[in-house]
Amino acid sequence: MNNNKLTVSHAPFWHDGDSLFKMNLNIMIATLPAIIFGIIQFGAPAVGVLALSLSSAMAWELIINVLSKKKITIGDLDSAVIGLVFGMMLPATSPWWLVITGTFVAVVIGKMIFGGVGANPFNPALVGMAFLMLSWKVFFDFDAAYINYEFNFTALAPLAALKFQGVDAVADLFPLSDLIMGRQVGAIGSTFGLGLIIGGIYLILRGYIRWEIPASFIAGIIVTALCFSMAKPDTYAGPMLHLFSGYTLIGAFFLATENSSSPANRIPMLLYGFFAAVMIILMRNIGAYADGTVLAILLLNLVNPLIDTIRPKALGKGISNA
């Protein structure tokens, strides 16, 4: 008889083999269609912005890990995803300091000071983005950003054109096929609608994002925009322009679905997605911003803990002893 030391622990003794690393890796894989298209469209500067964004986001987390003498956590790729999604929302011509400042705000202020992964009340990439948009608004004027580019399609950012020239002016400028196929001016990873949808569907099928959020988000965009355009077709654009321009689709699949800042119960997820979309259309149609996606999702992040209390009753709760 031998006297081996056995491993002793509690049930369950199985695990389905999933991990944060795998989850985040899959999110990064899902961004590839949109990113590759963005690189083809906007060239080497787009590669530079994405690479700097991803690497600086991870570097910020590493620095905070070292400074706070905590375990090094960049291996879970959470900051990599933040950096990548953040990079996708920037114009390809962003200067290096803008990217680094943005990822600092996103990773350090948006995530690390709340306690790291899982503790952030807001989507970190959006915190960084909101900070940049409020501080250096001029860099997010996509028309100015791509002034030196020559495109074989309308070189106007659809939402800005809509805001400042009105719905009549843009009606013929942006055919739906152009918008879906990415023939529009915008941020690196946000123009190729089809690619974002493919990536999003991949994530839904793999179970890494919850389908309720993107579905209700898109439904919210369509319903609200339709209401506006039916009420005043001369003033407000139809739902398809809103859906395939600006940050709408990246918001639906990659921003609103960020785990720790979104609800996890079914009804709250539907409410969250829908009202984020309603807020976006309200901001675009009535508010001062050309694209309200960033602020709208941040606003709903704020409401998330409140609405996530709507949940089914647990088994056997509230039943008097029979």
């Binding site: 999933d18 944060l20 989850m23 879970d76 306690g115 790291g116 992964v117 899982g118 503790a119 179970g207 890494y208 919850r210 785990n259 720790s260 979104s262 996890a264 119960n265 949940r311 089914p312 009753k313 647990a314 088994l315 056997g316």
Partner: peptide, 18 residues
């Protein structure tokens, strides 16, 4: 690791425990 709020546990729980 802390909980990242992915909601997998919530959806699989047969007793609806959050």
């Amino acid at each position: 690791y802390p909980c990242v709020n992915c909601g997998n546990c919530l959806r699989i729980c047969p007793a609806n425990v959050p």
